[in-house]
Amino acid sequence: MIKTIISEGLPVDEQLLIRKKVIQNGNSPKRICIVTGTHGDELEGQYVCFELIRRLNEDIRFLDGTVEVYPALNPLGVDSVTRGIPTFDLDMNRIFPGDPNGHLIEHTAFEIIQDLRGADMVIDIHASNIFLREMPQARINVQMSKKLIPYANLLNIDFIWIHDAATVLKSTLAHSLNVIKTPTIVVEMGIGMRMSRDYGNRLVDGIFNMMKKKKMWTGTISKDICKPILSTTGEVCYMNADASGIIIPSVSHSVDVKKGDLLCQIVDPFEGLVLQNVLSPVDGVVFTLRTYPVVYEGSLIARIFSKNTQIDNGENQ
């Protein structure tokens, strides 16, 4: 069954529709929600929605509870290759928890929160942006970590990144839901404007694994569930560009690197000059890597997780 959460008129002959697919079987009151498409250029979640629903449809008898899938919280953005909310140029993941008396988009954000409120688990799937490729990972506020880490461990991802309270953005969907005691895990994976079947299948396997542990799924699950690295067992090291220019990569995403390894060069194509050799400051795994070649000073190039170092960081979720 497809349910419409929001239906509001657009100026000319069109409705703004936000819809969810509801799949229910058995008697359990348990409900998990899969949400994605908040940023219109993040598409990795589309495959997850498709594959999750396909598998559930195939073996619905093994489901005991309700799975709700929201493939596009920002349908105007997804359908027009726009990261933010078209016409307003706003980042939808910066307007939560919304306002019932506010503008259409604030009202919409409020209604989305009300619809998700009370779920036993919400998985909020993101796909980085068009600049950076991300290893499949969960991002969790330290204040929620005790409750959420056991579930994130089930999701067949590579990494769990625990964020300090000071760096958590309070206007996100995930934060707003966690505040009202609706447990929500942000999953980041892949890269904007692209879709990876491999990453998608892994997360779908993880979601079934989580449903099994929650006693919502009695069917088979993958035996090959990855145990993620927890960020608190080491440090996250940020590599930002010191120079503006063009990046020529020297390593691939998700590889292990040694201290001193060349990650990439920032070059000046005009002069044929290397402006910066970006070297890894630590031994670790490259879990974020820039793929978009043009950089300004400060542009994020990579994030490396190292088990052995103490590094001063201060970045946001």
């Binding site: 980042d91 930002n240 043009v294 400060g298 994020l300």
Partner: peptide, 20 residues
């Protein structure tokens, strides 16, 4: 470059992203 809002970056971070 990245469509971020400078007025959502305060107090900023001098080792962070460009708009930070």
């Amino acid at each position: 470059m990245d469509n971020t809002d400078i007025n959502r970056m305060f107090p900023g971070y001098d080792k962070g992203e460009t708009t930070q």
